[in-house]
Design a binder for these strands. Structure first.
Lengths: 214, 214
DNA sequence: TAGATTGTTAATCGATTAACAATC
DNA sequence: TAGATTGTTAATCGATTAACAATC
């Protein structure tokens, strides 16, 4: 009995991409059904969690067989909003901005990168793949005319909040933050962190804790 | 009354890097003290959460003044295990592997990248900055002789689990996973996900939910 | 001193897990 | 049919928030 995603808890949403990746993989192997126990095993969860999570979605399992993989994939795609292409701009044409712009997985998964911007005017006009690096002044127009929903912040920490503000002013609805700093966003703009240094620090801490125990 | 980090909950550990980044920033501005309320405001938390979090650390605040910034930074650095350099290898010399290897922030924050490996033998010997891309066969030796603790998986999804297994066999204690797939790890190896496509999908879902509400 | 801020306890809130009737 | 697996309720577990005495 799905009530749509509006009430879906964040921890559940965070797991949906993992389910999707696994389901796609199983589909490629030719499998047709998957049980909550099998998904749990593959993703280090309990079958209880899997069933609870999927109950937030518009999908029904079948006793004795589990969930139909095609069905499950389609439902996950819809729930995640991947059924229509999302347009993305990248701000920052450093190593990461470049890697992101060239990352063919994004396009394959429904994210269309339609602009790369950098405040360093020396980079303006240079190409990254088929994209041309543009000046920050062109950002608002590009976001508006292309109806860009997502902005990726790939700039040094000192510039991150300013870049985020500009992206929000231009009208993006969500921000992926790769900068070292926390970004303060308007309540109607979603922010997801992909701060790699912070993740390495978390890893460092996790390693330290484990060695303390055993 | 700190009991060390062994019992620190994961959500707290995840916030430590954010505290550290903020504290470093405040130190740069010449500030000497920070209150839990000020930290909360900057990081979108409540002051209660901040005080609870910091109570897991070996630091004491001072009534009416807050926490000494130098003290707090040092404590966070120790807690996160950043007081000694961590050695890192990168597997996968694609766009991301390259960007990571060239990312000067890692070195600045105490992560020393001491090897880049790729199974594509055509890349062997090529340089990324001052590093030379090596064959996967050399991985075990490199991890052992350099005492590498962290492996970064920056390869296509199909190869990710195999690469992770090899890293674990070689002896790394933690893995940063940038691949699209979930990685199953031994219980004594920590895994932190930095799966950018998954994060974009999560963002897409968050955006979708918000537009449903308002 | 009066007032601000901590550290900590207790209350609330929410997520995960266990259990089991319903079902194919 | 018997057995496996779902969907869902209830129990547990854990994290966040509120409250306030202690303190500088």
């Amino acid at each position: 009995m799905s009530v749509g995603l509006n009430s879906t808890p964040v921890p559940v949403i965070r797991r949906l991409p993992r389910y999707l990746a696994r389901v796609e993989h199983l589909l490629e192997t030719g499998q047709e059904w998957v049980s909550s126990a099998e998904l749990a095993e593959a993703l280090d969860l309990t079958s209880s969690t899997v069933r609870q999570d999927l109950s937030h979605l518009d999908v029904r399992g079948v006793s004795k067989r589990g969930y139909g993989l095609v069905d499950l994939r389609n439902t996950l795609v819809t729930a995640l909003g991947l059924d229509s292409k999302s347009k993305v701009v990248i701000v920052g044409a450093g190593n990461f901005g470049r890697a992101l712009a060239l990352h063919e997985n994004f396009a394959r998964r429904g994210f269309e990168i339609c602009g790369v911007f950098d405040s360093n005017s020396k980079l303006n006009g240079k190409k990254i793949g088929s994209l041309v690096i543009e000046d920050m002044d062109r950002l608002p127009e590009a976001v508006r005319t292309d109806k860009v929903e997502i902005g990726i912040v790939a700039v040094p920490a000192a510039a991150a909040q300013d870049v985020a503000d500009r992206l929000m002013d231009a009208g993006v609805r969500g921000i992926l933050n790769l900068a070292y700093t926390h970004i303060n966003a308007r309540h109607d703009v979603a922010v997801v962190d992909a701060r790699l240094v912070a993740l390495l620090q978390e890893l460092s801490c996790a390693i330290k804790m484990r060695s303390g125990i055993r």
